[in-house]
Design a binder for these strands. Structure first.
Lengths: 231, 231
DNA sequence: GTCTCCCATATTGCATTCATTTTTGCTGGT
DNA sequence: ACCAGCAAAAATGAATGCAATATGGGAGAC
């Protein structure tokens, strides 16, 4: 029998929750996931406790694990926190980044700009994420990296379906130009500030989107059938 | 048989790790803790996975859980992160705090100053912690509060035995005066800045202390007998 | 002495089992 | 239709059992 599934299983489960496989505020079906991943309930439940510690699910006594609901308040809070974390990352990046890492960021930036020009949103998102992660990784601050990854995972669930209006997108691209420039000059203060406002803009765009589609069309028959979330 | 031990057990285990009950870089004895808390291995191991997600222990495949070693690098990283978190807390505190909470902070501040005058370090520490936690709580930002608590728990293990030289202590007390003043004036920017430098000073003091007692006197017979940590 | 190899023992990882709680679906009443 | 009330079924929480892995100690070689 296979040993040490924990790390793999945890990653796979995290993907299930962040990848939109389970909708927000829905029950996490233990048995189903056991079958899907070919493990017994013991390691699966261990992974769920870890996900709960990461803030991706809520554990309700005797009612199992539930994916976190998406609320405007939490979205705002998540972005304010990740803004602070990335600001710190920006500062430390400029004192610790190597030339090789700078070169890689340059390449990612150029590639992302190309996707912006051709309006390839999916590829743009992927590169965008790599850039932000590379900035954080360049700090060599493991504590920061861990919290950044955790918080970003929580945001990823929300952003999963967010659109990108042209005006916002153009602004974001300009901010990335500024970021790259600050990195070249090793100006941590400026980089930190740009990152923070960059995230404020992203947050505003997503909140606007959330507010537009508020009702979520859930008083329907499907919504009735689903078990009600905790509290 | 008792149900839903998870939350209680997790808290108790966290206290064991943060309270200095288990030294840094030591094995977490599963069976022993099971006996101590009167539970079977299943819930205990679940709690350990959660602690690992919180960054309090490392899980080593087939070698169990180990408390994190205390290193200077990690200490520096922890403080830089909690500095960023508290800076954010300071900003949001001033926009969201209620008058009742301000009143409570006033009382805590006065009480802490009294302990400073009489040089009652333990009581000072306790009040200090309450003040910082109250500032964070006043933001009503659950994401921030959660990460703050987690990070603070990791720092608590380190600070457990840190001394407090008179000069440092006086400076810290002055900074707290400035914080209280900024709160009264609802000046989030200033409060955030003070908090960040306040933590920078704390960090410097603790690192200095760590550097003084580097060797940890562990090549002795006791150190030889103990199983060696992972990696 | 000490170094290496080997085996008994302890510990870990996971599956299974069992008790408790929740959910569901049915019944009969209104 | 609608609702209580109740029993069956499903899900959860925790203990136990069992295979895989790591640890510790001694025997023997040098």
């Amino acid at each position: 029998m296979k040993q040490n599934v924990h790390a793999d299983l945890l990653g796979a489960l995290r993907d299930v929750v962040t990848g939109g496989d389970l909708p927000p505020a829905s029950r996490v079906p233990e048995k189903q996931l056991c079958d899907r991943f070919g493990v017994s309930r013991t390691p699966l439940r261990e992974a769920l406790k870890a996900l709960a510690a990461e803030g991706l699910v809520d554990l309700v006594p005797n009612r199992g694990a539930w994916t976190k609901p998406v609320t405007i308040d939490e979205t705002r809070d998540l972005f304010s926190v990740i803004g602070a974390l990335e600001e710190l990352a920006g500062e430390q990046c400029c004192t610790r980044i190597t030339e090789a890492e700078t070169e890689r960021l340059r390449a990612l930036h150029v590639a992302m700009r190309a996707r912006f020009e051709t309006r390839d949103l999916a590829a743009y998102y992927a590169l965008n994420r790599q850039i932000h992660e590379a900035i954080v990784a360049s700090t060599r601050n493991e504590v920061l990296t861990r919290l950044y990854m955790q918080t970003n995972a929580r945001i990823a669930r929300i952003r999963f379906v967010a659109p990108m209006p042209p005006a916002i997108w153009t602004t974001a691209m300009q901010e990335h130009d500024g970021m790259m420039n600050a990195i070249e000059r090793r100006d941590g203060t400026v980089l930190g500030n740009i990152l923070r406002t960059h995230l404020r803009h992203k947050c505003a765009a997503i909140i606007a989107d959330l507010e537009s589609g508020t009702t979520e069309a859930d008083a329907t028959e499907a919504g009735r059938r689903r078990r009600r979330p905790p509290a």
